[in-house]
């Protein structure tokens, strides 16, 4: 399992520097919301990894090696979490070094959003034709970035009872339940993806 995750590092070792530079650019620019930078950092590697993974040749190779299909998907889901943690760590360090303020709430929001988005994206990437999932991801990301904030603020204004309820929840309970929800969502996505992948023909 560890080998499968390590493979992603070997494949993208050159790109990793690029990613760090990209994050650094956003950190120095200082325009974006910290949560946005964290989110971008968290999802860029997993999305790229998937772009590599969906090539038919890669699937033929991975499935000809002594790995089971369950393991291949498991490594993808565990690897994604590893990448989110690492990206968040690196971004935090960069923010700290360049003296940009951020809070744990930023990290909590970005991580749960990243998990949420990738839970949708991972199973989808095994259905969509190879080569199309990265553009789909980019477009969806832009669309979501465009429509989600207004929707959230609109809902926040209108559904005051819901937001009041959420805001009145004690902080630990709020985060714990958000985390649990995230885990359940991610777990379901994992199960669904395994189901899809087991039936795939190469």
């Amino acid at each position: 399992m560890f080998n499968l995750i390590r493979r992603d590092f070997i494949i993208q070792k050159r790109q990793l520097v690029m990613y760090v530079l990209l994050i650094l650019f956003f950190v120095l620019l200082g325009r974006q919301d910290p949560a946005f930078i964290f989110l971008l950092a968290s999802i860029i590697i997993p999305v790229n990894t998937i772009a590599y993974d969906e090539k038919p040749e890669t699937n033929i190779l991975m499935n000809s090696l002594p790995y089971t299909r369950n393991e291949i998907i498991a490594s993808r889901f565990l690897g994604t979490i590893v990448f989110i943690i690492l990206a968040t760590g690196v971004t935090s360090v960069l923010m700290y070094v360049f003296n940009r303020p951020f809070t744990t709430t930023d990290i909590a929001i970005s991580s749960s959003l990243a998990l949420f988005l990738l839970s949708l994206y991972l199973p989808m990437s095994y259905i969509i034709k190879p080569g199309y999932s990265a553009p789909t991801a980019l477009i969806s990301f832009l669309v979501l970035a465009g429509i989600v904030p207004p929707i959230v603020s609109y809902l926040g204004e209108r559904l005051t009872s819901v937001t009041d309820f959420l805001l009145n929840l004690p902080v630990p309970i709020f985060y714990t339940s958000a985390l649990l929800l995230g885990i359940v969502f991610y777990g379901t996505s994992w199960g669904v993806t395994t189901f899809i992948y087991r039936r795939k023909a190469f």
Partner: peptide
């Protein structure tokens, strides 16, 4: 070729070898 085409043989070996 089913191996990651951007990689060299050394890296490919590092990916394949631990599988066996």
């Amino acid at each position: 070729n089913v191996f990651f085409e951007n990689l060299n043989l050394k890296d490919i070996k590092r990916i394949v070898a631990p599988a066996y």
